[in-house]
Simulated assay, not measured.
Amino acid sequence: MRAAENPQGSRQPTASDPREAYLALLERITASGARNGTAERDELGDTSAELGRWLRERRLVDPGGERLNPPERAMRTVLLEHGRRLRETAEELGRETEALQDLLSLLTAPRHASREAVEIEYFTDRSLTRRRLEALDSVGTDEFLAMRNGFPDPRVLESSLSADLDMLARGVRMRMLTSQQAVRSQASARYLHALAEAGVEVRVAPTVPLHMNILDRTTVVMGAGPGPQGEGGDVILHSAHVAQGFVKVFLHAWDPAQPHTERQSGRGRAACGLSAQEREVLVLLATGAKDETIARRLACSDRTLRRLLNQIMEKLGASSRFEAGVTAARLGLVS
């Protein structure tokens, strides 16, 4: 009886040949002449789990698993699904590509976005600045660069010398650049000579642009106030990047400067010992006046003038009148 009711075959579809099983199912359902939903559900319900999975993967059954799809409909469904997935994938790739381009632009762009927060200290009282510097100098480990366009009074210099020598004893390399004007006083000359004797590299330049300390190339101390040495507004900058910029300023002035010598100190001390008459002679020499004109101006003899010139050259450590004039100009004795 079962065979008579099912003349198209005597065996249930299996997954051993899923294509043959699908075609057999499709033929039986099509041969009935009408799509009987109940009979179709029953046919599909009798299939094995493996065959059912094969049919669903190829969209040969509807999502509910109750109706069998012809190959044409299954193909259209697969193509539509793949088209949707391709569009979604393209959109995702577009977003990922845009993200990668943004990252590349950040990598290749100037790093202005990578800003560093710089700690700044500001003092209007230089005595407070000096106390802060003592604390900073005590932790210095590598290098100390100093630029001076002037020096404080002898008492402060004596205290500074002690701190500088302590830093030097800890192995800190020290370099000091000072202006020619700054070495004129006896106190500054003694201070620089003591530093040089202890092993500090000291150089002298006609002028220096800043009154500044740089510690370990990470901390910069500058006199930024209205005073001759920047008094009234001392700034301390804690930043290695900022310090590197000021190191370049220091080295630019350091390289052409001349090493400090005792003779330079002697010039500074001697300049302070020039008499008013000797200074007047220097001023007249700077104007290009001849000996006869200078002698008439001073109301002295040629012999007295020659003696004055010899005294001036000896005090300035100069070997000629020309060198005496150059030294006097460097020391600020003539304008």
Rank of each mutant, 00 (worst) to 15 (best):
S275N: 08
A328H: 12
V204A: 03
Q244V: 07
T219P: 06
L165H: 05
L79Q: 13
S320Y: 00
R84F: 07
I29K: 10
M174P: 14
Q101R: 11
R84T: 00
P71N: 12
R175H: 08
A198C: 03
L161V: 05
P71G: 06
L237P: 04
D302Y: 12
S159W: 15
A182D: 03
L210R: 12
T124K: 07
T30R: 06
R307C: 01
D62W: 05
Y122E: 09
W54D: 00
S319W: 12
E280P: 07
E116S: 02
M174A: 10
L104N: 14
T47I: 09
G94W: 15
D137R: 14
V249C: 03
E292T: 13
E143F: 07
E5L: 13
R296L: 07
H241S: 12
L26Y: 14
E5H: 11
A49I: 02
L309V: 00
A240G: 07
A74V: 10
T47Y: 00
S335Y: 11
R303E: 15
K315F: 06
A276R: 14
V221T: 06
L251R: 13
A196I: 08
H241K: 10
V220P: 03
V208A: 06
A34S: 15
L104T: 13
L282H: 10
D164Q: 15
G233F: 00
P70F: 15
G332L: 04
G37H: 06
P152K: 01
R111M: 08
G9W: 12
A271N: 02
E43G: 05
R111I: 02
A240V: 03
R111P: 01
D42A: 11
A135S: 14
A39W: 00
A4R: 13
E323A: 15
N69Q: 10
L285V: 00
L79D: 02
A21N: 10
M174Y: 15
D153S: 09
R131A: 14
E43H: 08
D234N: 05
R131P: 04
R217F: 01
I120D: 02
L333S: 06
L55S: 02
G325T: 14
L274D: 02
P256V: 03
R56D: 07
T207P: 03
A169K: 08
R132E: 06
L192D: 04
T261P: 02
H252A: 15
S320W: 05
A135D: 09
E262M: 08
T287N: 06
F123P: 02
A328V: 08
V78Q: 13
G37V: 03
Y191L: 03
H238P: 01
C300K: 01
V281I: 13
R296N: 06
Q181K: 12
G245P: 04
P256T: 04
T219V: 08
L274P: 10
R131K: 05
D102S: 12
E72I: 12
P7I: 04
A182V: 07
